[in-house]
Amino acid sequence: MLKIQSLSKRFVAESETVHAVDGLSFEVHPGEVFGLLGPNGAGKTTTLRMVLGLVRPDDGYTEVSGIRTSVDPFAAKAKLGFVSASDGVYPWLTVREMLLYFADLYGVEPTEASGRLETLADVMDIVSLLDRRAGSLSTGQRQRVTLVRGLIHDPPVMLLDEPTRGLDVVGVQTIFRYIAHLRETGKAVVVCTHRLDEAERLCDQFGLLHRGRLCHHGTLEEVRRDTGREHLVEMFDDLMNPATIEPSA
Rank of each mutant, 00 (worst) to 15 (best):
A103P: 02
P57M: 01
E221L: 14
H181Q: 11
R225E: 15
R133Q: 15
G135I: 05
V233T: 13
P30S: 13
E97S: 02
I245K: 15
M124L: 15
S86T: 11
I4H: 03
D72V: 01
V127E: 13
M240I: 08
E32M: 12
E27I: 02
T174I: 04
G53T: 00
R116V: 03
R195N: 15
T244G: 07
Q5T: 14
R201A: 10
L202G: 07
F176S: 11
G41D: 06
A75F: 01
T111A: 10
A76S: 13
V127C: 08
I179G: 06
V170T: 13
L36R: 02
A13W: 07
V145I: 08
V83M: 12
A243R: 14
R10T: 07
G35T: 04
A249I: 12
I179T: 13
K77A: 12
T69M: 14
Q205R: 15
C203P: 09
D226P: 00
H231D: 12
L105E: 00
L202Y: 11
D237S: 14
N40E: 05
A243L: 12
V148C: 11
Q205N: 11
G81I: 07
K3L: 12
T45R: 01
L80C: 06
E198D: 10
E112R: 15
I175Q: 00
V190N: 09
E184N: 13
G23I: 07
T219P: 02
S15F: 09
K9F: 07
F176W: 11
H216V: 03
E184P: 08
R144Q: 03
G135N: 01
V12A: 10
V12S: 11
E234K: 03
V71P: 02
G107T: 01
D237G: 09
E118W: 02
R195I: 14
A134G: 10
S128A: 15
E118D: 13
D104A: 15
G115H: 06
R10A: 07
R225A: 15
G228V: 06
E109H: 10
Y90K: 00
R49G: 00
D237T: 14
L151E: 02
M1S: 13
M235C: 03
Q143T: 10
L36F: 12
R96M: 03
T219I: 02
G228R: 08
K44R: 06
A134F: 00
V18C: 11
G35P: 01
G41R: 08
L239P: 11
T146W: 02
E198M: 09
E118F: 09
